[in-house]
Design a protein around this nucleic acid. Structure first.
Length: 436
DNA sequence: TCTGGGGTCCTAGGACCC
DNA sequence: TCTGGGGTCCTAGGACCC
């Protein structure tokens, strides 16, 4: 067993993924500053390198930076998730063949495991070359730029990836191997505490107050203190920084425990009829997801809230119902959810956002032909085939081709997406690929 | 006028049981 | 009167991620 080669963890992720996808669709924007907005055209969620260089802040509300964007002639795009999702699938399919095991961590990043080749000099040159070849393959096949971080643990691979992106004058640009450097300390000191994976706003403030300003200091601080404030999560993080893997690779995603669909409204909702339509719309999307995941929901929550920025008193409320029998049937779930919407609506509180959470999820396979099914078996089978047909038609011809009457038509509150790169039904076949 | 959406994990505390 | 001890399950809330 001592013959096993040591493992290396890699993190591969897309540079400015959404912005890069937009450039793929319209090569004319290449080399020009571009930003992508969140749903409802709310905030900036992705920037091209040129937009970043102009100092456009990530996460800024669009209306606040709009003058700055216009002044610099920045191209602005609504987010086009069907495009990003398609490109993500192709990226992950490519990465599959480059690593031993792959964990798809988010739409634009994945962890992988590799065997680290032994070299007498211990230089690690082989993995740098490997990373460079991977970047070239992805660029050729998909036209997307990626960065590659290599290290002994996931937390360190995240850091290596960051260094790969932001350190100028690396021998292999876009690739960094933290396991191959003689002394990692100066590199860890270049990572501000806020940039460490797992340290969010609250914990970074706490660290700063204790004089912990970078990843190296976090690694070396007393474990007891960290444990007291952050529990086992903090300890695991610190061990990973010290090079001991604590976070396993998750190549088979676990079944979802809950599924949520929520949106902000383009204009505030002031009538119960509109709220019912919105909830019905979100619920039917959530039920679709549930059926795709082959799950049924045992309980369901509807939540609403007013705008925290309106100057009026903030209103936030939620109601939960446990279903007598777990279900994935839109009609059954609607019958449970709409009365909750009625209960939560308040005429004096214009609503800015609402959502539906499906909870206590269980595998649909275990429930089929349930003894206590409210419908006779034949009727139940017809019902399932009807839902499957609706899902198939909506998948083939676009969302909303067939929908429940309760969802309403042409809703004034629906999400704003005024700068979509292409008409809503982007299909992968339409995407022109640039051969770099 | 205008501030995203969808998740996970951990912990503390209460309810309930024997 | 005064108030065991150990266990499980559930929920709410906090913190984090992209």
């Amino acid at each position: 067993m001592s013959t096993a080669t040591p493992l290396a963890t890699v993190l591969i992720d897309g540079n400015n993924f959404y912005a890069s996808c937009e450039a793929l669709l319209d090569p004319a924007v290449l080399g020009r500053p571009l930003v992508v907005l969140s749903n409802n055209d709310g905030c900036i969620v992705s920037r091209s390198a040129e937009a970043r260089a102009l100092g456009i802040p990530m996460g800024a509300p669009f209306f606040q930076v709009r003058p700055q964007l216009e002044r610099h002639g920045v191209i602005v795009r609504s987010s086009n998730y069907s495009l990003y999702g398609d490109m993500s699938q192709r990226l992950m399919a490519t990465l599959e063949s480059w690593v031993e095991e792959l964990e798809v961590y988010s739409i634009d990043e994945a962890f992988g495991v590799l065997h680290r080749p032994r070299t007498s000099a211990g230089s690690g040159a082989d993995l740098l070359a490997w990373g460079q070849a991977l970047r070239q393959a992805v660029r050729q096949r998909l036209g997307l730029p990626v960065a590659v971080g290599i290290a002994p643990t996931k937390v360190l691979a995240k850091i290596a990836n960051r260094l790969a992106k932001h350190s100028p004058s690396l021998p292999q640009p876009g690739v960094f191997d933290l396991g191959a450097v003689a002394d990692p300390d100066p590199w860890l000191e270049a990572i501000a505490i806020e940039e460490v994976w797992g340290i969010g706003r609250r914990l970074s403030r706490w660290c700063r107050l204790r004089g912990i300003r970078d990843a190296r200091q976090l690694r070396d601080m007393p474990s007891g203190e960290l444990r007291l404030r952050c529990g086992v999560v903090g300890l695991r993080l610190q061990r990973e920084l010290r090079g001991h893997p604590c976070l396993p690779l998750v190549s088979l995603p676990a079944a979802k425990k809950e599924t949520c669909v929520s949106r902000s409204f383009s204009t505030p909702i002031t009538t119960v009829a509109e709220l019912r339509e919105a909830i019905a719309t979100y619920l039917s999307r959530a039920a679709e997801k549930l059926r795709r995941q082959r799950q049924c929901a045992g309980s369901l929550t509807v939540f609403v809230r007013s705008s925290p920025f309106s100057g009026r008193p903030f209103y936030s409320n939620a109601a939960t119902i446990t279903l007598p029998l777990a279900s994935d049937d839109t009609a059954v779930l609607l019958a449970a959810a709409l009365p909750l919407a009625d209960r939560l609506f308040h005429p004096h509180h214009p609503l800015q956002k609402a959502g539906v959470l499906l909870q206590a999820l269980q595998s649909a396979n275990q429930l089929q032909h349930h003894l206590f099914s409210p419908l006779p078996a034949a009727q139940q089978a017809r019902r399932e085939s009807l839902l499957a047909t609706i899902d198939a038609l909506n998948a083939r011809y676009g969302r909303g081709t067939i929908q429940w009457a309760a969802c309403g038509l042409r809703s004034p509150w629906a999400m704003r997406r005024s700068r979509l790169s292409r008409s809503g039904t982007t299909r992968l076949e339409e995407v022109p690929v640039v051969w770099a």
